[in-house]
Nucleic acid binder design. Structure first.
Lengths: 139, 139
DNA sequence: TTGTGTGCAAAATCTTTGCACTTCG
DNA sequence: CGAAGTGCAAAGATTTTGCACACAA
């Protein structure tokens, strides 16, 4: 499971330094139920590191994305939000009205992926699937 | 099938005026094999209406999207490109090594989507699916 | 101590808005 | 002719860069 400590540990192992601003961004992401723009991540992060700048948030989100701990969330008209990503397999379902984000697992694409693989000659290693719709309260 | 004339006709029926700049943007989109940023759409459109401005391209892309004749294309780090909706429902398969991109159609997620919908209470309206792997020459 | 990481300010992009002029219908 | 549409310039928003200073390791 994803926790501040496990992320910090991985960063450290990979040679990155553990700083107050980085911890603040990580915490902000983890406590976020939905997904947030960099600016919004910063607002949250400020609770843990009042001086954190937007630039650092951008850089940290980049880093976390590369490490697989955060993911850019794509919705129909916006791809500027980020959410914490469990390293394992999961997807996001986003409400287009209020932005509420739910993670779910257990997508079964295997047969479909086999077909695409056969048709294209690619070895498929990864897939990104995002769903968008209306949550129950926005319907 | 999508053609300049059929789009123009629909716009007209819906009460929009048929102008040179709009035709130019439509033609630019239709002849585009892939997808393009607004700036790039404008470059192409200039062949048909040299004076067309970026602002008009933005507004026209908006209009066409609303009408369902254009679609915003999402890739991992960019969701600012547009393509004619002509190309229908499709997804991208990208090689992580060399970046070669293939489009494919015919994903069948319906049963899966029903399940997620039941579990979450969301009405699912849209999905974004991207595959990543190794193309045949990179394997 | 040392070099990675940070914040600030400024630059570079990208997108939207206000407004007077054009032009379709 | 009248209102919708256009281009320009300017404003807004978002993201990146350069640089001197701070601070993990």
């Amino acid at each position: 499971m994803l926790s501040e400590e496990s992320i910090v540990q991985q960063l450290s192992i990979s040679g990155y330094r553990i700083t107050r601003p980085r911890r603040a961004v990580i915490r902000a992401l983890l406590e976020d139920e939905g997904y947030s723009s960099p600016a919004r991540v910063r607002e949250r992060a400020r609770r843990y590191c009042a001086s954190v700048g937007l630039v650092t948030v951008y850089r940290t989100l980049d880093l976390l994305s590369q490490m697989g701990f955060a993911r850019r969330i794509h919705t129909e008209n916006d791809c500027h939000g980020y959410a914490a990503a469990n390293h394992g397999h999961h997807h996001h379902l986003v409400c287009r009205q209020c932005g509420a984000t739910v993670e779910f697992k257990g997508c079964d694409l295997s047969r479909f992926l086999v077909r695409v693989s056969e048709e294209t000659g690619y070895v498929i290693e990864n897939h990104l699937l995002e769903l968008e719709g209306l949550c129950s309260s926005c319907q």
